[in-house]
Design a binder for these strands. Sequence first.
DNA 1: CCTCCAAAAGTCAGTCTTGACTTTTCGATG
DNA 2: CATCGAAAAGTCAAGACTGACTTTTGGAGG
Lengths: 185, 185
Amino acid sequence: MHKELLVLGLLLSGPMSGYDLHRIVVAHGELYADLKKANVYYLLERLASEGALHVVAEAGARGPRRERLVYALTSKGCERFGDLLRRVVRTYEVAHTGIEVGMVFLSYLSPTEAVALLEERRQTVMARRKLVDRESHHLHEQLAQDHLLSLMDAELAWIERSLRRLREQEKTAIAPDHPNRCPGS
Amino acid sequence: MHKELLVLGLLLSGPMSGYDLHRIVVAHGELYADLKKANVYYLLERLASEGALHVVAEAGARGPRRERLVYALTSKGCERFGDLLRRVVRTYEVAHTGIEVGMVFLSYLSPTEAVALLEERRQTVMARRKLVDRESHHLHEQLAQDHLLSLMDAELAWIERSLRRLREQEKTAIAPDHPNRCPGS
DNA sequence: CCTCCAAAAGTCAGTCTTGACTTTTCGATG
DNA sequence: CATCGAAAAGTCAAGACTGACTTTTGGAGG
């Protein structure tokens, strides 16, 4: 749903082809939703068939492969943009990345291994945080960047806390909660 | 991918039918991944066809609709569980919920409306936080719950910060960054 | 004893999403 | 001048996911 918003929003600043859209998305790196190329084309076609976009058949563009389709917003599409924007800002859904599931089953690993894995995770988060931090942005992208950084900081803090708990558990070496073996076939 | 982990992990504590799995998932509320019923059946079938599960055809179960399929982990499935668990804990992906996209286009709304929408969002997050907080959990679910709460707190803090910025902008009433109108069709 | 509802247990058709492949052409290089 | 690689601009089939629908039946209420 936010992918649709992204497409519409980018088209607000002028007609574009699917390829252009995709290039903008990847250029913005971490900030924008993970919108793959094929998905862009799918969304464009759907939105066009719904009447939110219309084709401006730019027959002879510069460069190779000249039969590219250029899309432009219709007034219906612009209304849709407004609706989606309001909906996205207003609503909140917990992000289910899977780490929660991982934590629930963490006791199937030895505390020592759990600690090692979480330390790897911390490295990963820190690296990615640096990436996002480095990206300099326009004014209206400040809030978005700030959001990402906040979440990453929260993740890091949580990892630290969890590591501390696990290390204590490691020292007091209680018998493992679950036996660490697979059932036979 | 973490949905698969969830299914395998739950089956570690004994054979179950798709319906049982789904019931457990919804019983745990916010903690577990958003795993819809039809998706459970899909995953079971796929995992079985990959040899990670096998059917224990419980022909005559209690209750209505007795021809239910009960699935059990194979040793291959248990290995897969271990792999997935390690992978999920180790890796981190930024959660693209769409608010970032919303923020990028926030200047298409008046600061006043933006503030109102963010305040609604704050309400939503607070309500959901209370839900998660209320749920009492077993020891091995503590870390998962803590993770969710951390993210929600970070979200709340970010909302406060953003509101402050927007209110300032509202007072100093600069001419809007973007004209707030849709292009004609 | 009848009936009507909620829960059990799925199924299905359609929508989203993606990795991998294709075709064309510009420009660099030997 | 031939060719070879990289970038442009997509396409496609397959996989993941979902909302809405179905069928069966045990038991509550009359």
